[in-house]
Design a binder for these strands. Structure first.
Lengths: 167, 167
DNA sequence: CGTAACGTTTACGTAAACGGAAAGGTTGTG
DNA sequence: CACAACCTTTCCGTTTACGTAAACGTTACG
């Protein structure tokens, strides 16, 4: 058995397979993301094994979410994470500085990066909701027709154009 | 009853390039979608030109929305549109029937198909919102730290783990 | 210290979603 | 009816996002 505590206090580093199963990706995909510059493992072992920390895991989870939930391409994710890289520099600036004013500036910079990301995600959400709205419009349209029949009425409008139909 | 029949009076049929520019797709993409079974043009001209009606255009718009806005793969879209095919059958049943009860049944069937689609879209939306929530959580976290600095306070918690960071 | 389990790089293979060119037929306007 | 503009099918090419060996080194356990 092994006690953790490798270099920093309480920082357990994971190997690629452990990370993969925890995040729900394959090792191959993770290496591929690294190849694209989407991340860079926290460290390498003596024998060049990739070693990931908690931040890396969070980052990979974020990437996976952007890919699966938001449906972004890896190129788009790359652009989103360029912002993240800037954020990382801000964090480093924060960590290495003792001047509160500079620390504050670093944090504000990080905040801006997140705001950008949230804005992009919100745009995506808005478009999705527009689609849902449209589908529900068709739904309401159909319900009116059903109500018409139930009331023995004739259709008020022509039936055509209720939405995307097959053949 | 209905003014419009199979070949309605004011039904302008469009050729592939017209449809493409109107919907925002390339002719090649449209032919590819047809090859995948996602749609089937309303008619062919004497010389085998593909001819599209308003329903086809709506369907293509829907496909494009599912692809771009919802981020579905064409395979997933295909599954969603199988429901659409069923809906088309319901519509046909509605059109050819004179029995109000059967017409009603057809409409209810169509309604169910739409409900399925809306449910799927809503699931997608929920996952997207979860991501947004998470990002905003990180945002709030950062704001607290900024407020701490502004108040001359020491950080209440360790700074690590604020989210996906780069290196 | 042997060896099973895990990792590394390199490289070729693959499915998805089209792009683009070739070779030829169709439409419609002067 | 000539001819430009548009269409057809066929087929090969490309990018993205990995999968899958091959050949080899590393870790950790008994």
């Amino acid at each position: 058995m092994s006690i953790e505590a490798d270099s920093p206090a309480g920082a357990r580093l994971l190997r690629i397979n452990e990370v993969a199963t925890e995040v729900g990706l394959t090792p191959r995909a993770i290496r591929y993301y690294e190849e694209l510059g989407l991340l860079d493992p926290a460290a390498r072992s003596e024998g060049a094994y990739r070693l990931y920390d908690a931040d890396d895991v969070a980052r990979l989870r974020f990437i996976r979410g952007l890919r699966d939930d938001a449906g972004f391409s890896l190129a788009e994710i790359g652009r989103l994470l360029e912002d993240e890289a800037a954020r990382a520099r801000h964090r480093e600036r924060f960590r290495t500085s003792t001047d509160p004013a500079e620390q504050r500036a670093a944090l504000v910079g990080a905040l801006d990066r997140i705001d950008d990301q949230v804005a992009i995600l919100r745009t995506k959400e808005a478009r999705l909701r527009a689609m849902i709205e449209e589908a529900e419009g068709r739904r309401r349209h159909l319900q009116v027709h059903i109500a018409d029949i139930d009331a023995g009425r004739e259709p008020s409008h022509p039936v055509a154009g209720t939405g995307p139909s097959g053949r």
